[in-house]
């Protein structure tokens, strides 16, 4: 399978934040959820992919091309949606269409107008007259109207109500029916990803904690709960993280089989959500 995005040893020191030599890749035809708490490095990574900031070291290859050397060729095939609106709010959708259409070689005005109609966007309305959800839909219409092969979305659903979020997720599912296309979807609302993502890359404090298929994560990781007396050194050692109170404990483990069978039988074992995994892992040092 060919890689549409490949990041190796990417490093950036930026506003008292360090992105620590991160590596991950995305194959064609898949949706990757890029998750992590606020300030973990998601937006910095996306800015580096889009060449909005300069990297200190490392490599970013998109469509097998260096993202700095072939910047404009690559961007012809990228659709992007950012966390907030950056289009001129005093201009109408129609006027922005006039500005954006000549930018892309493969711009399809018919497709754009179809999206406007599907999304119920009035071309005569100014951007400032649109709700946050409608602005996001406009960005999405722009991102999808030039046959982009890689869609990069930085927190597109944050601040949107569940109905809008659900609509956007359905659109992404439709995009991925074309197996040439991939989506990198950054969010901290992990429930969105449980519905649509094929891969999950989890970043915390500038480091990649994991990057693998979503089902592997959800199958391998377990939350174990039990009486405090069962929290032995073995569980403390193998747990990604754990928390305890005077009576009970709960821990996130990636390989349940490493816990002695006798102990395991006395524990309650639950399937974690992506949120659980993120919360446990983001907490940092194992809490005593």
């Amino acid at each position: 399978m060919s890689k549409i995005l490949e990041i190796s040893n990417l490093r950036k020191e930026y506003n008292k934040f360090l992105l620590k030599d991160i590596s991950f890749s995305l194959e064609r035809g898949y949706i990757m959820g890029f998750i992590g708490p606020n300030g973990a490095g998601k937006s910095t990574t996306i800015k580096l992919i889009m060449n909005l900031i300069n990297k200190d070291s490392g490599k970013i290859k998109i469509f097998d091309m260096d993202n700095e050397k072939y910047d404009t060729d690559i961007k012809q095939k990228i659709g992007f949606v950012y966390d907030e609106n950056y289009f001129y709010v005093d201009l109408s959708i129609k006027t922005l269409h006039r500005i954006i259409a000549p930018v892309y070689k493969k711009w399809d005005s018919k497709k754009f107008n179809n999206y406007l109609s599907d999304f119920d966007l009035d071309p005569n309305k100014k951007i400032k007259q649109l709700s946050k959800g409608m602005k996001m839909k406009f960005s999405l219409a722009v991102a999808l109207s030039h046959d982009a092969e890689l869609i990069i979305m930085d927190e597109p659903t944050s601040g949107l109500d569940p109905v809008f979020r659900s609509e956007i997720l359905e659109i992404l599912s439709d995009i991925i029916q074309d197996e040439r296309k991939s989506v990198l979807f950054s969010t901290h609302i992990t429930s969105d990803l449980e519905r649509i993502a094929d891969y999950i890359t989890f970043i915390n404090d500038g480091e990649i904690v994991l990057s693998c298929p979503k089902y592997d994560i959800l199958e391998n990781y377990k939350i174990v709960k039990g009486k405090k007396s069962l929290l032995d050194n073995n569980i403390k050692r193998i747990a990604e993280n754990y928390r305890e109170n005077s009576f009970n404990f709960e821990a996130l483990v990636s390989n349940i089989n490493k816990i002695d069978k006798a102990v395991r039988d006395e524990l309650t074992i639950e399937k974690p959500t992506l949120d659980d995994i993120m919360i446990f892992t983001a907490r940092g040092e194992k809490s005593a």
């Binding site: 909005l52 404009t72 961007k75 012809q76 950012y82 930018v103 892309y104």
Partner: peptide, 9 residues
Amino acid sequence: KIFVSFPFR
């Protein structure tokens, strides 16, 4: 931010 993200040098 948008215009730098478009395929412009």
